[in-house]
Computed example of a mutant assay.
Amino acid sequence: MNTKKPTLLILAAGMGSRYGGLKQLDPVGPSGETILDYSIYDAMAAGFGKVVFVIRRDFEEEFKQIVGARYEKLITVEYVFQELTTLPDGFAAPAERSKPWGTGHAILMAQEVIQEPFGVINADDFYGRNAYEQLATFLMKSEEPHTHTMVAYKLRNTLSEHGTVSRGVCQTNELGQLLSVEEVTAIAKDGSGAKAEDRNFTGDELVSMNLWGFQPSVFTALENQFRTFLSEKGQEMKSEFYIPFVIDEEIRAKRAQVKVLETDSQWTGVTYREDKPAVQAFIQNLISQAIYPSNLHTQPTI
């Protein structure tokens, strides 16, 4: 069993553009808490021992002052940078390209600061306490260097009332191991289920919300596959190197396996502007159940 606490890698390089500036990080809690505050609170309670933020250099100081400073006295915090120009030797980004290289590239940027098992989350997604507990338990118990994990949600627990969403629909085997992740777009809520063009879903389907748990061996896979990606698509303006593609290739080549952990937690996030009141009400309901304190910032763990 691993005795070292796992690390939480937070993909935050898109925060500046996504929110129109870090100062506009929308509070969803009654005392000004953001979704990220709840995520780190849950992760620390579950046993994570370090936080690594993937950010861009153009908002480094602002991010550290507004976001990072909240946590640096509570948990080890490190920063790594995702830039278009951070590429392996022999490769260069097209001069006209402005789109980031994708989640696989973002995770690869943490290779020098993570030597232990680690979880990966999006900075603006609310995953729920149970998801972090399952993830931390798996990472602390797992001793197989090429067995990774993913926390999967029931589709109905990830939909928006205000528009369609894209979700990675998971296929698993009888052992609960991931076989594939199929990206399905334009999924709309439909009664207790969902639909997407000519497909109907019961709502019980397992979907990926980019909540992964990795052994450090994943960095070798990322590095090798990123070189292949750049060779084939590096001169395109919008091609991205997504982590599900990397994992799918590792599974197909039998170099790794992924254990799927199922959670009944409700995922939430602000996909549409109209989602915010529902997220606020959702958080308030958890506070009324005493799952969270009314003021997260006064707690010794946050």
Rank of each mutant, 00 (worst) to 15 (best):
M1F: 10
T3Y: 12
K4G: 07
P6I: 07
I10H: 00
I10Y: 01
I10E: 00
G14S: 09
Y19N: 05
Q24K: 13
Q24H: 14
V28A: 07
P30M: 09
G32A: 11
L36D: 03
Y38K: 02
I40D: 00
Y41C: 03
Y41F: 15
Y41N: 05
D42I: 05
K50Y: 04
V54P: 01
D58Q: 12
F59N: 09
E60D: 14
E60F: 04
E62D: 11
F63I: 04
F63G: 00
K64Y: 00
Q65N: 10
I66K: 00
A69S: 15
Y71T: 01
K73A: 13
L74N: 06
E78Y: 10
T86L: 12
T86N: 14
D89L: 13
A95F: 12
R97S: 12
W101P: 09
G102N: 15
T103E: 11
L108K: 09
M109S: 15
A110E: 02
Q111T: 08
Q115F: 13
E116K: 10
P117K: 04
G119P: 02
G119S: 05
I121D: 00
N122M: 05
A123F: 04
D124I: 03
D125F: 10
F126W: 05
A131M: 02
E133R: 10
E133M: 04
Q134I: 02
E144R: 09
A152G: 05
Y153A: 03
L159T: 08
E161C: 08
G163Y: 04
V165I: 14
S166D: 03
C170K: 01
Q171V: 02
T172Q: 07
L175E: 15
S180V: 06
V181C: 10
E182L: 02
I187A: 06
I187P: 06
K189W: 06
D190Q: 15
G191V: 11
S192E: 13
A194Y: 08
E197F: 08
T202H: 07
T202L: 08
G203K: 09
L206F: 02
S208K: 00
S208L: 06
W212C: 03
W212K: 03
S217L: 12
S217C: 06
V218F: 05
A221V: 10
N224Q: 13
F226T: 04
F226V: 08
S231R: 14
S231F: 09
S231W: 12
M237E: 12
F241H: 09
Y242V: 15
R255T: 11
D264L: 14
G269P: 01
V270R: 10
E274Q: 15
P277Y: 13
P277F: 11
A281Y: 00
N285F: 01
I287Q: 08
Q289W: 10
Q289N: 14
I291Q: 14
P293R: 11
S294Y: 01
N295I: 07
P300G: 06
T301H: 12
T301V: 12
I302L: 13
I302S: 11
I302A: 07
